[in-house]
Each structure stands twice: as C-alpha cells, then as structure tokens.
Nucleic acid binder design. Structure first.
Length: 152
DNA sequence: GCCAACGTTGGC
DNA sequence: GCCAACGTTGGC
C-alpha cells in the first residue's frame, strides 16, 4: 500500500464537501497536469491512502485522510463542455485525463498546518513544503505518514 | 493583491 | 529541439 497527498482548494472542493457526499465518496476530477495524471493512471491503487490537503486558503495544511476506493479511470469531466475542466483535446476513444474515487476515512480534529510541516525536521523535506511546488498529487513516505497521523 | 516558481505553448 | 512569452498556482 502506498501513501499520497491530494491538494484541493477548499473553495472548490473541501473535506466538508466530501463528508457531505453520499457514502462520503467522490471522483477526484479536474487534475490537468501530466505528472499528476500519470500517477492517477498508473501508480495509485485501490486501497492506497492519501492526505487531503487544503491549498490557497487562510490556513493551508493537511485536514484529513481518504482512501482510494477505485483506481485510475478516464476523467469524464474533460468531455463535458459545460465543465470548467473541459478539454477539447480529450476524447472518449483517447482520454487524456484520469481520476480515481476517494472515500473519506477521517477528518482530523487537529489539522497539520503547512506552517508546522515546514518547521519539522523530517516533514520539511516533503514536496508540499518546497517553495514553488505546484504538483497537486505527491507521494508521501510511510515515515511522513506516521508522523502526520500522530501530530493530528 | 503581489510575485516567485513552474508548466505549457508556439515561433523559429 | 531551444527558449521566450505567457498563464496558472499558491503562499504570503
């Protein structure tokens, strides 16, 4: 089993939005970056777990845990002309973008803020702590995972 | 709202 | 295939 970190802007889709969904499950749509796409399509497996990270907000940080309940499949929002994620270059025969389904496992009672991550001797090496990092999906090591779960 | 960092595009 | 220009991300 592997560990990941999924970024989302809470104004677009927050952990509370996920909690309000039926079965607390939702497709993780709208990833439009090739590096992240490759991870969604090829690496992220059913049963893997991921941190839910809130970005571009007052207190950026890790707010909870999700489980991957369906591995990579074509992101149909790319085919929907009315979607903000529409991409004219993606077709059903040749899908360009992928998503996975995530299910809420736990919302932390205490978020682990980016501020704390940057101060921690081990966690500060995480990609999320690196200036200019824009990748919306990043791998997390078991060590990092355990430290963050313990701190939450 | 600013701006640094980065990915993507397109001319050559 | 290079690289400048441009658009977007995301912390502050």
């Amino acid at each position: 089993m592997n560990y990941w970190l999924f970024k989302s802007e809470p104004d677009t889709f927050s952990i509370d939005d996920l909690a309000a969904r039926p079965r607390q499950t939702e497709p993780w749509e709208g990833v439009r970056n090739y590096q992240a796409r490759n991870m969604l399509r090829d690496e992220i497996q059913k049963g893997d777990r991921a941190f839910f990270y809130h970005s571009s907000c007052a207190e950026p940080g890790i707010v909870g845990i999700v489980e991957i309940v369906k591995s990579g499949y074509p992101d149909i929002s790319a085919l929907d002309k009315k979607s903000i994620y529409f991409d004219a270059k993606s077709t059903s025969e040749n899908p360009r973008w992928y998503c996975v389904d995530v299910k809420l496992i736990k919302k932390f009672s205490h978020s682990v803020l980016l501020e704390e991550i940057k101060k921690h001797s081990v966690l500060k090496k995480m990609l999320i702590a690196r200036k200019g990092n824009r990748l919306s999906i990043t791998p997390v090591t078991k060590e990092e995972w355990d430290i963050i779960c313990h701190a939450s």
